[in-house]
Amino acid sequence: MRYEVCFKLQKKEIVNDYRRKFISYIKNILEKYDSDIKDKFYKTNHEKDFSFSVYFNAEKFTDEKIYLKSNDIKLFISIYSLEDSLYFTNAMLGSIHKKYLIADNEMEVIKIRPLQEKKITTEEVIFKTMSPIAIREKLSDKKSWYHDFDERGLKVLKKNLINNLSEKFPTKYLEEMNIYPYEMKRTIIKNYGIKFPVSMGIFKVEGNKEILDYLYKSGIGSKSSAGFGMVDILS
């Protein structure tokens, strides 16, 4: 399921490192709904089958803040499992008209609405990013390297997908998957105080329809449940 959550900010600004604030919002509403459900997602560090993106109309960027043209901001969230979608639906509905701190600002949940999902019927899909794709190569317990959406990065991305999804889908199907960049652009973002490169744009994925559906609903790349890798279908 996909949802749009509309917020109204007290001030027309948001911190650059804003994704962590929306993770706090998600943790908060799940905790208030059912602490066991919150623990299901966040008690251990594991892959979560959802992704989200944040939309706002920016006017000016600084090192610490983004100044906006309006007080409106939207959270788009996509959840793979129907069961998990029901948890999120109930948790989000309980947050309507409640206010949440976001650094030195405050945001109020105005409305929540479900979005129509698109159906994948072929083994080839052109995706457009809704939030940037992070490709993380873990070099050691304390060191990682983030790649661009290029030949080397795509090898790392595919390797990560095989490792992360091998319990959900046959390895044969994962290995046969191909990813082709069309119009991808590199940018630098800040997340939890750390700057690293990410990629946004349009790309094609060829592969098993069930795997393509999973990527569409749960995101692609590293940190998908932390505001990265949410995609929409162009064709």
Rank of each mutant, 00 (worst) to 15 (best):
D36A: 14
E64R: 10
G207M: 02
K190W: 04
L161K: 11
I77K: 00
F22A: 00
Y100K: 00
S235N: 15
L157F: 06
D150C: 10
E59I: 06
S53L: 13
F196D: 04
I37H: 05
I233W: 09
E210M: 07
D232Q: 08
S235L: 08
K65F: 13
K40C: 08
A58G: 12
I79G: 03
Y182G: 08
P197V: 15
D39Q: 09
I29R: 01
K74C: 10
K43H: 04
K48F: 05
I220M: 13
I120G: 01
F88E: 08
K119V: 15
G221A: 06
T62G: 09
F22R: 02
S70C: 04
K128P: 01
K155D: 12
L157G: 11
M230D: 05
S53P: 08
K195R: 15
I211D: 01
L174F: 08
D36G: 07
Y67A: 05
Y87K: 04
D232V: 10
F203L: 09
N105V: 13
Y25E: 00
Y55C: 02
I110K: 13
S235Y: 09
L165T: 01
S35C: 02
Y100L: 01
Y87E: 08
E206L: 10
K21Q: 09
L161E: 10
S81A: 06
K38T: 02
I102N: 01
V198Q: 07
F52T: 03
I112M: 09
Y80F: 14
K40S: 07
D148C: 11
E167K: 13
D17T: 11
E4Q: 11
Y67P: 07
I102H: 00
Y18A: 01
K119H: 07
N160W: 05
S24H: 12
C6Y: 08
V54D: 03
F76N: 00
A134P: 05
Q10N: 13
N164S: 13
K74W: 12
I189E: 08
K128V: 15
I202N: 10
S235T: 11
T187L: 15
V156N: 08
G201A: 14
D36H: 03
Y214M: 00
N90D: 11
E59R: 14
P181C: 09
F56C: 02
V198F: 06
Y173Q: 01
Y42A: 07
K38L: 11
K12V: 06
K118D: 07
Y100P: 00
F127T: 08
L212S: 01
K74E: 03
N45C: 05
L86I: 10
V205N: 03
I179P: 06
F22L: 11
K190P: 03
S225R: 04
Y100C: 02
I135L: 02
I233R: 08
F52Y: 13
G221T: 07
I211A: 03
D36P: 03
V205S: 02
I37V: 14
G229N: 10
V125F: 08
Y33L: 00
G153T: 10
K204N: 11
L215S: 04
E47A: 12
N28S: 10
S81R: 13
F228E: 02
